[in-house]
Design a protein around this nucleic acid. Structure first.
Lengths: 180, 180
DNA sequence: TTGGCGATCTGCATGACATGCAGATACGGT
DNA sequence: ACCGTATCTGCATGTCATGCAGATCGCCAA
């Protein structure tokens, strides 16, 4: 997304007001590569501006996303994550600690759709017209590879919706749900 | 996933019980390509077995996912979707009607990760070890391409978290939120 | 076939995330 | 400095998902 100054100008030119809350969020998001959730951003914002409302954070994030200054993603870790990187990139998601990192993928545009049920349409598959392609690589980040304890103690393990094509790191054995 | 009969055997051999509720769900899921949500499955199940609990549907879906007979995905459309296709495939998601279709992608394993911040690790990127790759193509299915009214009237348009790399189909103009 | 242990089901409560609403407030052009 | 109106805050509401406890029933054993 653009700089806080540019965003302020843009907001004003759209008839939107530039409030201290918005300016703070502009700053917190600018060059932010941590893919924060709305609540995470709210926590940080609250430190610098006690009393700011979570509602306002959601509102501003929604506005920025609508303006194309921000992208929102749902990696199945519970809350939506926001990304000020508006370039064509993809994501690495650590299934142990929930960390998200940007990654650039060669040949993502050249992926060839194959198999299925019908005849390929003009620009897509079986009449489906593709507008965008999202690629998510799931695995373990460097920290969680080193730290064997990361398996259980961190936030997002288990089988949170947001599947994958091979059993993640949970033992695919028997469902454990005994209550002795 | 395997056939209802095989699943029954598998469940029993794991010390789990084969109840009528589970058998019904085995049947409803077998060869099901509609990627139902838990609630959608519950609705169908309720017809054939009035009184079945939504809680039981969630429980059984979780068990099947844990056993690797099912995958769960979150496409950002609100509810998690379940997919009995356990092969290596990817998804087409219609941003207008929410439909999900399986698709096979050539070269998905050969994607090359580029750019970023550090040195590539042994098997991944900057020490990140990739365990699985999920690719989601967003766009419009054949039905929604034909039907121009699909834009507004269907469930999942707007900007539901579950982003994309180009503005979806909403006008990226100014955030509209006037309450006259 | 009957008996009994324990897994499972159902129904409700609880929890995380997200959005609608209304009154008080403050931005920003005049 | 003034005023119209976009915003902010706080609370209520809504959706999806899971924890819990008592009643029920599958399934192994006698």
């Amino acid at each position: 997304m653009r700089s806080p100054a540019e965003l302020s100008t843009e907001f004003r030119s759209l008839g939107l007001k530039v409030t201290p809350q918005r300016q703070l969020l502009f700053r917190l998001l600018h060059d932010n590569t941590s893919h924060p959730s709305a609540e995470a951003l709210f926590d940080i914002a609250s430190n610098q501006m006690p009393g700011i409302s979570l509602r306002t954070v959601y509102q501003t994030l929604t506005d920025l996303a609508l303006m194309g200054e921000l992208q929102s993603f749902d990696f199945g870790n519970g809350a939506a994550r926001f990304d000020p990187n508006t370039g064509a990139h993809h994501h690495l998601v650590c299934t142990a600690c929930g960390e998200v990192a940007d990654v650039y993928v060669d040949g993502a545009d050249r992926l060839h759709l194959a198999g299925g049920s019908g005849t390929d349409g003009p620009d897509g598959f079986d009449g489906f017209v593709v507008a965008s392609t999202d690629i998510v690589f799931r695995g373990r980040c460097a920290n969680c590879c080193d730290d064997p304890s990361a398996a259980a103690s961190r936030p997002a393990e288990a089988t949170p919706p947001g599947g994958s094509h091979s059993p993640q790191f949970t033992d695919p054995a028997l469902p454990t749900r005994r209550k002795p």
